[in-house]
Design a protein around this nucleic acid. Structure first.
Lengths: 246, 246
DNA sequence: ATTCAATTTATTGTATACAATGACATTGAA
DNA sequence: TTCAATGTCATTGTATACAATAAATTGAAT
């Protein structure tokens, strides 16, 4: 109980989550945990014990619990009653559902967006695509994912529909988890070239073409995932928990 | 402070919300508040003070707050920092967004559903439509709204996509608030006949036709709303709060 | 009377104490 | 060695106390 106080939170700190003496706003803490999950510094099924998070961020369990519940609403964290929170571990079905939902929502988004997008917004999108390419060639997977998400979010923002935007935000987070879980080679992030074609279609003002480009893009990403094989090997951990003697 | 203990919660109790001595699960309380809002027993902008809810349901503020946050996440309740929770009062823009999102999501749902729906599920849908007609002729607005929501939810359930289902659940709740706010004559609930046509299209196996029926249905509902006129008169209440002398 | 400031009151935000639950280890017998 | 039962420990669930904030009220000065 003496030494444990140090080791407890070290495993989370070691993952890039840092807290200080005092004063971390709820949103900041939320953002830190969110980023750690999305950027795959916290793997699926990693337990998020309340006390450890309290130690790290120097806040009470009240606010930690609030944040965990928020993450649970967004399906990034799973809370099981009396058993605490853990980073969500999406099933194969979840993965399919997320992409299906993205097709529906981003289809609508891209149609609206291509009708109202301004030249400067088009330019901004192209800039993101360029940065994506830089990340890809440099092998910066984390940056690449972040930029890809940024691309899709910006599209949603130009569509002007905050409701669709918030749905997409959730779906993008879940997509990141799906990629972390089912795409070891990062092929499912979606190539910058495809994003480029999407921008071209929007620039031409043909919303059907743009919608089709988006659908093709999402189909392609989903196809890159290893969803056909065996079920989540992470369950093995639980399955063999009683067998392996420590 | 003696008599206030009674009056405090009476205004909420008077709206059909009832608590007992002890023991109300979180989900039950959530459901009671949710239903009261959806069935329009609690009007938009009605304040939901934590203490009063605690009195009514005999639980601590901890659990009441958790429930309020959940409702806020679903955009049925609005929480302003340090100022408490109130029944959400959707703006005109919100109303348009909700219907736009429903077109996107229910379009996808109806396509998938019409591909996999069974005869018994078709029959079940028809039964709901029949009940809707009964409610309409009898003038039972509450029952009608409930059944209409039930119809759309069941469709989503047969599609099998839980992600789209949960999005739709949120959108239906928000739709109910929009109807409460912008449709005094209840024309925007959508006529049972339109639901009937939708079922016919699905029965024929033509998913394009079914999707089109859904789109037409939603367009029709949205068109029935009074969204063009002046901005929310409910704000007047606040505007005149300092003028009218009690 | 009206306006503004100061004070009081009501309500929400946060921390913490205690209760309840589930996980784990130890024990004992088959 | 395996299994079940039991007790201990770690962790989460709930209530409550206190702090912080915003609203309401009071009172004086104009």
């Amino acid at each position: 109980m003496t030494s444990s106080e140090h080791t407890t939170s070290e495993d989370l700190r070691g993952v890039g989550i840092r807290g200080r003496k005092a004063g971390f706003s709820e949103d900041q803490i939320y953002g830190q945990i969110f980023d750690a999950i999305i950027e795959q510094r916290l793997a699926p099924d990693t337990r998020l014990a309340e006390d450890k998070l309290c130690d790290i961020f120097n806040v009470s369990r009240t606010v930690v619990r609030k944040i965990l519940q928020r993450l649970a609403y967004e399906k990034i964290v799973q809370i099981r009653p009396n058993r605490g929170a853990a980073v969500a571990n999406p099933s194969v079905k979840d993965a399919h559902e997320v992409f299906e939902a993205r097709r529906a929502i981003e289809g609508a988004i891209v149609r609206t967006a291509s009708a109202v997008i301004s030249p400067s917004e088009l330019e901004s999108l192209r800039r993101i695509v360029a940065e994506e390419e830089a990340c890809m060639t440099r092998g910066d997977r984390t940056g690449w994912i972040r930029l890809s998400n940024r691309f899709h979010l910006q599209l949603a923002e130009t569509s002007g529909n905050e409701t669709l935007l918030s749905f997409l935000r959730e779906l993008l987070s879940r997509s990141s988890l799906v990629v972390a879980r089912y795409d070891s080679t990062s092929r499912a992030i979606g190539s910058p070239a495809t994003h480029g074609k999407l921008v071209d279609a929007m620039a031409s003002g043909d919303d059907d073409k743009a919608a089709q480009a988006m659908a093709a893009h999402l189909d392609h990403c989903e196809a890159q995932l290893n969803l056909d094989g065996e079920e989540p090997p992470i369950d093995l951990h639980t399955v063999f928990a009683g067998v392996t003697k420590k």
